[in-house]
């Protein structure tokens, strides 16, 4: 019985704080993206041919932890299969945040664009049995600065 109560408290805490943090994060991501759109990040490997550019490696890195509510929903989802919607926002936020940080770095270098952008993602939650998923998303590319 106590276990059930503790689980319920953890779920509601996870939902309340997780939901609040997510809303706040999205608000900040959207606002910063509007500014950073002036510095395009492009997946193409072919750099612009209109002149000479300095090339530098830039990267953005972010680690996002899961909350108990999302983990519980994902655990239930594991029974039935299907889209794991509770983790979608987690990964979406992580990717967009990583790109923003990469662009921050490029902007500091005075770059005009970032080319050949790639993502890496890894699970850093360790090997314990009842681990909470914690993911790292790493975005990197080549910053081009006109000479």
């Amino acid at each position: 019985m106590y276990e059930l109560i503790i689980t319920l408290i953890l779920i509601s805490l996870g939902y309340f704080f997780g939901h609040r943090a997510e809303k706040k994060h999205y608000k900040s991501i959207i606002a910063r993206e509007k500014v950073m759109n002036s510095l395009p990040a492009i997946a193409s490997r072919m750099p612009p041919q209109d002149g000479a550019y300095d090339q530098m490696l830039v990267s953005g890195n972010v680690v996002i932890a899961n909350d108990y509510f999302k983990m519980f929903v994902a655990g239930l989802r594991n029974l039935f299969g299907g889209q794991m919607r509770s983790y979608e926002t987690l990964l979406d936020r992580a990717r967009r945040e990583a790109i923003l940080r990469m662009k921050d770095e490029a902007k500091a270098l005075g770059a005009q664009a970032v080319f050949n952008v790639k993502y890496e993602t890894s699970n850093i939650s360790g090997q314990t049995k009842k681990r909470m998923p914690v993911i790292e998303v790493h975005a990197y590319g080549t910053a081009l600065t006109k000479i």
């Binding site: 939902y15 959207i30 993206e33």
Partner: peptide, 25 residues
């Protein structure tokens, strides 16, 4: 070369998380 502002809700389901939770529960 440009990065346009992409509309929200393409990579993320718009369903309320609690609805999902209740159905699964």
């Amino acid at each position: 070369y440009e990065n346009p502002q992409i509309p929200e809700g393409i990579n993320v389901s718009q369903d309320h998380p609690l609805k999902n939770f209740l159905i699964l529960l």
